[in-house]
Write a protein that binds this DNA or RNA. Structure first.
Length: 597
RNA sequence: GGGGCGGUAGUUAAGUUGGUUAUAACGCCGGCCUGUCACGCCGGAGGCCGCGGGUUCAAGUCCCGUCCGCCCCGCCA
């Protein structure tokens, strides 16, 4: 190494220099974003994480520097010393540093670079993600990802400052824990010193944070990595990050207030957006009735309406049969989108079929109020009028109906609603519509196993007023559980926990979990709860999803430095991979991979 | 486990009814150029058409299988 690094320290980051710096001698270090060689003068755009500065190597200023600079190519790493000067009439309005340039008088090339496998300029988002993931370290150099990860860093700092100020302690919990059978599939880690035994990686620090409350830490948080071995989606990775929060002596609104303040602060500092507090609340029941999903996007209309009572006696056999068999019929008024062609309506049918619906019935309302519809003839004038009234149908509107089991109808129309909003551009991207979804059911019935399961987890407290229904009317017990939803994406959820021993016993009884099984799965927690647990509750926020929304991207992978593909592989590491025989032997593990047919 | 979309120079794409030597832009290499900023001009190199099989006189193109990436269903207390 020569004079740079040791003698000549970096004085600025690229991106920070302005016309007020004219005349200063500066030292910058970074990468070649672009070069424009004009013979006697070479322009190099030097990029670092803060931005880009134009460096000019002028033969007449320093012939040696000019000669060295003529070798520079894309993504070479180098340092320059030079004087900041005005660009005069050649200002580049597209650059923050566009008013100035650095006239170089000394350069050192640190490292040369192979030609990158894909362009790293800002116009290069089009490169296949497969290639970008393979060379993730290069993709991460690009401005959009630099920006996303820097935002993520700032978000984490805001979380720490905000929760510290509220008296929360940042405490860590172990990664190597015990596998529990319920919930998501566990990632497991073999224990070498305990042959044949395995640890599990935490799906969340849930039980530990409750133990912190038992131990009197009162207010806890952690920016925690969580692991779930389930199939991936655009907003789901096998390892993800939560802001995990738990507090003692609280009711739901105490938890919600903390979270609202935290998010409001993040939105203000990161986006300059002032959020209106408190966030609106909607019950789970209302969300399902009006939007068909438990994480409603309320930025647009197209709400669902139940018309079961209006079609039960109709001549349309499909609707009449479904309602008589305990199913429901719901409809959306597809209003304001103009006429839809037959092929467009067929495409909408394909959408609802994904969610198990057998079909989509539709009716167009003509100018004279008559229905143009294959099913119009099955309804009486009065029935059509009643439906039109409930859906507020006007001439030009289209009603779309689905009849089936309640879960199918809600999923089909709820997702049809999303589909229409997206494809017909009904969404105002600048809107940040937060809401709390409350009063979730405590139990979910599983048809196959013919038993009730905990909808959230088995330590979630029922609403006090539902206490006596616990063993008799499980379907109508509501939980002190709440999700937080932003623009139709669930970004967090939590609950008030059970701290009363008798209540916990009844809950296990309602779930059909015997005492022995309770002891085996949760013995340590039940033991702990015999030593004076405080009333407590909490919540976890999905950091990756929140960052996805803050950064305005469609994929969680854009806010995770080193994400995995849909098949849970890392294309850069080539992970996972097989272990050497000796390694398996040491762990006393034998693998049995079924032969391919 | 299932449905859908995609895979052609380094990158992004085009490729007709199966028909001669597989196109283009950007990038790359060489040369020229002192005011460019997605610089310009001249010249050049660059292909396992994802992989395997089949049909055919002939396959990037048709058929079957398979791998990889993405979106979705199931799954995700």
């Amino acid at each position: 190494m020569t004079r740079f690094i040791y003698d000549l320290k970096r004085t600025h980051r690229a991106g920070s220099l302005r016309d007020t710096d004219i005349g200063k001698e500066v030292i910058l270090m970074g990468w070649v974003q672009n070069r424009r060689d004009h013979g006697g003068a070479i322009f190099i755009d030097l990029r670092d994480r803060e931005g880009v500065t134009q460096i000019v190597f002028d033969q007449s200023i320093d012939a040696k520097a000019h000669e060295v600079a003529s070798q520079l190519r894309s993504e070479w790493c180098f340092a320059v010393r030079g004087k900041v000067r005005s660009r005069g009439g050649n200002v580049n309005p597209k650059l923050a540093t566009g008013a100035i340039e650095v006239a170089a008088n000394l350069i050192e090339i640190f490292t040369r670079a192979k030609t990158p496998p894909f362009p790293l300029d800002d116009h290069a988002d089009q490169t296949a993600e497969e290639t970008r993931l393979q060379y993730r370290y290069l993709d991460l150099r690009r401005t959009p990802l630099q920006r996303n990860l820097q935002m993520r860093s700032k978000f984490n700092q805001i979380v720490r400052r905000a929760l510290d100020e509220e008296g929360f302690l940042e405490l860590e919990t172990p990664f190597l824990i015990k596998s529990t059978p319920e919930g998501a599939r566990d990632y497991v880690v073999p224990s070498r010193v305990n042959p044949g035994q395995f640890f599990a990686l935490p799906q969340s620090p849930q039980l530990f944070k409750q133990l912190f409350m038992v131990a009197g830490y009162d207010r806890y948080f952690q920016i925690a990595r969580c692991f779930r071995d389930e199939d991936l989606r655009a907003e789901r990775q096998p390892e993800f990050t939560q802001v995990d929060i738990e507090m003692s002596f609280c009711e739901p609104s105490d938890v919600q207030n903390v979270v609202e303040k935290l998010l409001a602060r993040a939105w203000k500092e990161l986006l300059g957006v002032e959020l209106k507090l408190p966030f609106e609340r909607i019950s789970y029941q209302d969300a399902m009735d009006r939007f068909g999903v438990d994480a409603p996007d309320m930025r647009y209309g197209l709400e669902l309406r139940d018309v079961s009572d209006l079609v039960r006696e109709s001549g349309f056999k499909v609707f009449a049969d479904v309602t008589r068999a305990g199913g429901i019929v719901k409809a959306i008024n597809i209003t304001g989108l103009g006429d839809l062609s037959r092929s467009e309506l067929d495409a909408l049918t394909d959408v609802v079929k994904i969610y198990g619906a057998k079909g989509l019935a539709w009716a167009k309302v003509k100018e004279d109020g008559e229905w143009q519809s294959p099913i119009a003839k099955f309804f009486s004038d009065a029935e059509r009028k009643a439906i039109a009234e409930r859906l507020a149908l006007k001439p030009g509107d289209i009603a779309a109906f689905v009849a089936d089991k309640k879960t199918v109808v809600n999923a089909a129309l709820g997702n049809l609603r999303k589909h229409l909003a997206k494809t017909k551009n009904l969404i105002d991207k600048a809107t940040h519509r937060f809401c709390w979804v409350t009063d979730f059911p405590l139990f979910e019935y599983n048809e196959e196993d013919k038993r009730w399961y905990a909808a959230h987890h088995p330590f979630t407290s029922p609403r006090p007023e539902d206490r006596e229904k616990l063993l008799t009317d499980q379907g109508n017990v509501k939980a002190l559980a709440y999700d937080i939803v932003l623009n139709g994406v669930e970004i967090g959820g939590g609950s008030i926990r059970i701290f009363d021993h008798g209540l916990q016993s009844d809950l296990f009884r309602a779930l059909g979990i015997e005492e022995e099984e309770q002891r085996q799965k949760f013995g340590f927690l039940l033991d702990a709860f015999q030593y004076g647990p405080p009333p407590h509750g909490g919540l976890a926020l999905g950091v990756d999803r929140i960052m996805m929304l803050i950064c305005g991207t469609d994929s969680i992978r854009d806010v995770i430095a080193f994400p995995k593909t849909q098949k849970q592989t890392d294309l850069m590491l080539n992970a996972p991979s097989e272990l050497a025989e000796a390694q398996l032997k040491e762990l006393m593990i034998k693998t049995v991979v079924p032969a391919k047919k």
